[in-house]
Simulated assay, not measured.
Amino acid sequence: MDIAENAALVVVDVQQGFEDLDFWGRRNHPGADGNIAGLIEVWQASGRPVVFVRHDSVEPASPLRPGQPGNGFKEYVEQRRGKEGGGAELLVTKSVNSAFHGTPDLGAWLKDAGIFQVVLVGIQTTMCVETTARVGGNLGYDVVVVFDATYTFDVEGPFGRRRDADEVAQASAVTLHGGGFARVVTAADVLAGAT
């Protein structure tokens, strides 16, 4: 696959609060954090831009609330932010699902930089990653979702129906890809196209 020379890696909500499995429940993709870290390093080494997105929850019980330790980025992300020699870097904060509805305006930043391709990684596959992909696709960006560099949690829906993290992540991938919002690929696919 082709990864543009100026493709932006958008790292969605890779925050410490998602380590609280008592709050969130069972997760999938245990290798996702390693894939995210590896992709950040490749992007920085190639001089491509990286966007770090942080969810500032307004929910009182959320571990992602500002002022809580869980609001901060996971250590491996924090260690890579501001790395010397990397490309452009942006921090976007939001309190809703889509990174395109945060501050500063991600779409305006991408447009000003002439960026048309965004590569999404992060948490949760089925929430903020998926919503960012859908909005990005609607806005006309070439959106790539790196499936094994995302993860999500078991969820309960209407009528008492529960689905495990793998099921909902697969459904998200199918609807994003099949619906034309994004190409859903693996980290290996992206690394092959980015080097």
Rank of each mutant, 00 (worst) to 15 (best):
E19G: 10
V50C: 08
V145W: 01
R163P: 00
L191F: 06
G157L: 13
V53L: 11
H55G: 05
F181A: 11
S62Q: 03
H101I: 02
C128P: 02
N6M: 06
V168A: 05
Q170D: 06
Q15M: 04
Q16N: 07
Q15F: 06
W43P: 08
L120F: 02
A8G: 11
Q79E: 15
V14Q: 06
V11A: 07
T132E: 01
F23Q: 03
G136S: 07
L106K: 05
C128N: 01
S62F: 02
D112I: 05
V96C: 13
K111R: 14
V50Q: 10
L110F: 03
P60R: 06
R183P: 01
D189Y: 07
A61H: 09
E78S: 15
V155F: 08
K111Y: 04
S62E: 06
V92C: 14
P49I: 03
K94W: 10
H55D: 12
V174D: 05
K83S: 15
G85C: 15
Y151A: 03
S98P: 11
R162S: 14
T131C: 03
G193L: 04
L64V: 06
Q170R: 14
Q16L: 02
A45L: 11
E167M: 10
E156S: 13
W24G: 01
Q117N: 08
V146T: 10
M1G: 14
G179P: 00
G137Y: 00
G137D: 00
A194R: 11
L90C: 13
G47I: 04
Q117Y: 09
A169D: 03
Q124W: 07
G180M: 03
T175N: 13
